[in-house]
Design a binder for these strands. Sequence first.
DNA 1: GTATAAGAGGACAAAAAAGATCCACAAGGT
DNA 2: ACCTTGTGGATCTTTTTTGTCCTCTTATAC
Lengths: 134, 134
Amino acid sequence: MMELTRKGEYAIRGILYLARQPRGQVSLVGEIAEASEVPKTFLAKILQNFVKVGLVSSSRGTGGGFMLARPAEQITLREVVEAVEGPIMPNRCLIGAGTCERDVSCPVHPVWEKVRREIVAILDGVTIAELARD
Amino acid sequence: MMELTRKGEYAIRGILYLARQPRGQVSLVGEIAEASEVPKTFLAKILQNFVKVGLVSSSRGTGGGFMLARPAEQITLREVVEAVEGPIMPNRCLIGAGTCERDVSCPVHPVWEKVRREIVAILDGVTIAELARD
DNA sequence: GTATAAGAGGACAAAAAAGATCCACAAGGT
DNA sequence: ACCTTGTGGATCTTTTTTGTCCTCTTATAC
Ligand code: SF4
Ligand code: SF4
């Protein structure tokens, strides 16, 4: 139950690499992939996710590559995980009403809600900058 | 990320049915399955898991069936979930040393450990008895 | 002791998700 | 023009989830 996928793991390793680069420095997919030991083509997809949600900025052509779109101090672990894995959601019924016909007065429902809130709180409390300096 | 599977969901619904029966009353798989809206053969496997870990006791033959092996007040939601889904484990590297070559001084490691502890604490704080009376 | 009524266990199959790769294309630099 | 680098989509493989089936064992009833 409740396991981070490879994609999430790779995403963290990848963005940590970016966070460790000097401000303004762009990095190539291949470079990040090698350093983080992540399959290059897979990482490319992950970086695309980051770009889409505005965590990372990209540029093409010679001299192009990826860099953080915001300072690492302002990027939380939660944002990184959710960028590639979608919203944190311990049980499907939390998505919205009607997902489970039983959700009207389901006694277990509030427990999952609490779990969700706790996980979100922990991951929101950790920034990429903190993780990167080590 | 981190979603309970159907199996876990069915397990909870199933054991709640047992918890709502009068003490000493045995229930048939088919009966539990129908009431909980769970595929019967799948539920049978789940009940086998429960029996294996000692949460539920079973008997065969005429008059056989399933009942809680302990009072519902002494069964926590964590036990139920772990019985069918295995240990709560937000990231593979928590299983043990050597799972990830990077785990030596990995800065993210402690975060997952914290998440794990929190989830365990929440699920350990909820008993089947509490959930059943509703 | 034979029929019947359960659960136990294992093999197996379908469906979904995860993990990974490829290629044609767009955009930017020389 | 030509090279470089990211983009987007299609596709493929592997693993996990979800579910079924069949045979065997255990227990009761007649
Ligand atoms: S039974 Fe309750 S906890 Fe389970 S999916 Fe439905 S609403 Fe959620
Ligand atoms: S990189 Fe760190 S968090 Fe990720 S699997 Fe390895 S030890 Fe765990």
